[in-house]
Structures are given as C-alpha cells and as structure tokens.
Design a protein around this nucleic acid. Structure first.
Lengths: 224, 224
DNA sequence: ATCCGTCGGTGACATTGTCACCGGATCAGG
DNA sequence: CCTGATCCGGTGACAATGTCACCGACGGAT
C-alpha cells in the first residue's frame, strides 16, 4: 500500500473517478504521514487541523459521554476519510467525539485551505467528499437506530458477525463489544454466556468463536 | 415572509453571505412551493427529488424503526435545509428516515442538476450547504448522545425546556414527547407525574406547564 | 346523544443498566 | 522466578426503563 513514488497513494483506488490534473498536482504535494497506533487524532475541545484521508490502517471514531461512557460511531479504513475533521472545520463547536488510531496509520492530512481550494475546483474531489459524508452519516444513523430500537441480543449478534475473521473468530474483549453496541460490559458478558449456553458461540479470554453462524444471523435481523 | 417579488426569498437571511450574481440568477428561477401540513416529504424507499430549502414553516425528520417506533432526529425551520434529501441524492440506499411537514410550508426545491451546478460554481452556496451539513450532523449526534447516555428524566427535562413557549407552556402529547426523547409513551407519562408530584410542572390534556424552570434546567444538565 | 378515536393512566412483568465486589490471567519489573 | 499491578471476566442485587394489556376519560363528528 505504501508505494515508493511520491504520489503513489493518489493512484490507489481512493478516488472512484479520475482526479482532474490540477487537483492531482495540488494533492501530490502532500506527503502521507505515519501515525502510531493508539494516537488520539482529535478529541473534545481540540479542533482538527485538516481533512484526513486514511491510506492504510484503521481509525475508530467514538462518542464519549460525560460519565466516561463510550460508543463507537464508525471505523475509518483504507481509502476513507474522517468527516468529523471536516465538520469541525466547518461547524462551530466540536461535540464530544474522539478519534483514535486503532492500528499504525498511513494518512494524508489535507490542510483546510487546500481542502477549500479542491472542493471549489475539482468535481471529482467534491464527489469524494460528498460520498464520504453520506456514508458516514448513514453509519451514524445506523448506530442510532440500533441503540434506540434494537435489543441488546440482536445488536450483539450483529457486531459479532461484523467483526468475525474468515475463520469465525472475533478478537475483542467484552468491554470493546460493549462500546461497539452502546451497552455495559456486564450486560455483554451475560448475553454472551446466554449465547454460549445455547451453543451459538464459544468463549475464550479476549475472543469469541462463532459456532452457529446461521442462527446468529437470524438473531441479528430480529425486530422488536 | 412570503414576499411579492419573484426572488424575495433570496433576499431573506437564508444565506449568511451574499450570493454571487450568477448563483442568484440560477436560484431566482426557482419558485417557492406551498406544501400542506402533514405532507410526507420523503420516506423510506423513496428518493427525494432535490435539495429542500425551507422558507417558512417547520419540517420534522424522524428515524423510524422496523417495529414502528419513531425518534425525532431534528426539525428544519425557516432558512434551513433538509440534508437528508441531499444525502439521498448522493448516497446509495436511503435509510429509514421520514420527513413530515409539521406546519404548512413555503419551500424551494432545488433540483439535483441545479444543486450540482451551484455547488460547483458558488462559494456562498457551498458554504451554506456545508454549514447545514455540520449543523444537522451535530443535531443527530446530540440525539445519539442523549439516547445512549442520558437518563429519561434528564432528556425529558431538556425537551420540555426546548419546546416551552415564552409563557412556559409546552403544547405536546405524551406520545410526541416520547418520540422526541426516544422512549415510550408510558414512560413519559410516569416521569411527568413524578415531576408534577415534585411541583416542577403542571399537567393538562395535551400540554405541560413548567412551574419551576430553574430546577428543570438543573435536571436537564444532570450527568449519569 | 352516541360513537369513535385520541389521550392519559396503571399494574405486572421483561429487559437493560448500575454498583459493588471477586478471583483468575497476564505482564512488567525486580 | 516471584510479586504486585492491571486487565479481564463473572456475579448478585437492585434501579431504571421498556413492553404488554388493559382502562376510563375526553372531545369531535354525525
């Protein structure tokens, strides 16, 4: 992913349509940065410095409540962007969201001035930005719908399916799953035991193995 | 608000910066429409036709769950815009949000092609669109934070303050308040009785009178 | 007046969140 | 290797909230 020529990241499939030449020129002046895992990219009260495009790695964006509780809003992976940064630039008050590098990152930070130039002059870049907005808002709305309307069991089944690796194993602590579904650690523990006693999953320290994917899928779709 | 000259709505304070002349020309070709109260502007499965700018009246945007439960995402008032329409145009699948005219409306529908032209050519229009995005996403994030982290009592106190008219009266049914805070009608009824028995509010059919604004404000800010 | 739909009220119960605590696993430093 | 320190998971008890099944009271329409 991390190429050798200056603007190789531009050539990767970050932009779905070809960029205009002048936009390419502007962007190829920007160098990808290396960011260590666990770095906090922004947090409440700190305005981000620009528009972040993730070339490689993964960023988690969390909503943090006053009581210290957290809720995962969405993850930003390769080729995607963190719209919170843009919103922070545009809007007035940054609300209480926090972005953390979940892995080591390769990312490009587009300064605000450059961002504004690109949005004004490049249709392809505009398209990229708008699509990113739409996708992120859809993510957040999905989380809202889950938290507001869906039972814990179903949310948990959903997130387990989402995070399972090809072999059917989910590497996550109960606490992490609780943050992903907007619940409490104890609740996740109990739900997992219930699922395990029904033979749907098997539990290990720091990991959950999916035993009955079909039934779990059914649970994830359950209404009410 | 509904002026007599063709483009009078453009002169109103919808745009915070002056529009470029060519953008004014494009927009003044669009005529405000009258929309009756209770009209559904869009709902799940129906793609909106354009970018809606509300000149007068109020639109409520709701998230609707499969079980029929509803949650108020935000209201769109004079000079604001419904970003869901834009997201629907840009994104792929419309999620399950529904927009309803809460009052009779005067609104301008900007067709997609015109919207794209304006975004490409007018910095003022772009600024308007981006600010609207930021404000709406902030609204939705606030709702999410409330639903995920805040107690019913506190949410209820907050929404009562928000909706009180200058005399301290809130005209809403328990059901409407329940939708506004993402809870159930029975829960709202019980919480209101509890507040009434503490002397913070007085209840009437279809309305709540705020008796102790200061204490209600304290509740609305409560953590945990 | 009577019918009908909306609004509010309530008990019983299921689900979820919170608090207080515990013991085992893991890991870093001595 | 030992030893805290910390993280992870487990659990009981209880509080808060959601759900279900009703009910009566009210207000508008015919």
């Amino acid at each position: 992913m991390t190429g050798s020529t200056p603007s190789s990241w531009l050539m990767s499939s970050v932009f779905s349509e070809p960029l205009e030449p002048q936009a390419q020129r502007v962007l190829s002046d920007l160098r990808p940065q290396l960011i260590k895992a666990r770095s906090v990219l922004f947090h409440p009260g700190v305005r981000p410095e620009g528009f972040l495009i993730v070339i490689d790695g993964r960023v988690g964006v969390y909503l943090v409540g006053k009581g210290g509780r957290e809720l995962l809003l969405y993850s930003v992976s390769r080729g995607e962007t963190c719209i919170q940064t843009t919103l922070g630039l545009l809007g007035q008050e940054p609300y209480s969201a926090e972005a953390v590098a979940e892995t080591d990152l390769v990312a490009v930070m587009v300064p605000q001035a450059v961002f504004e130039t690109l949005v004004a002059t490049s249709g392809a870049f505009r398209g990229f930005v708008f699509r990113a907005f739409a996708a992120r808002v859809a993510d957040v709305m999905f989380v809202l719908e889950q938290v507001a309307f869906v039972k814990v069991e179903s949310r948990l089944a959903h997130v387990l399916r989402e995070r399972a690796d090809p072999s059917g194993t989910v590497s996550a602590t109960h606490q992490e799953l609780a943050v992903a579904i907007g619940s409490a650690r104890e609740v996740v523990t109990r739900q997992l035991r219930a699922l395990a006693s029904r033979g749907l999953v098997a539990l290990e320290r720091g990991a959950i193995e999916i035993v009955d994917p079909a039934e779990l899928a059914r649970l994830a779709e359950e209404i009410a």
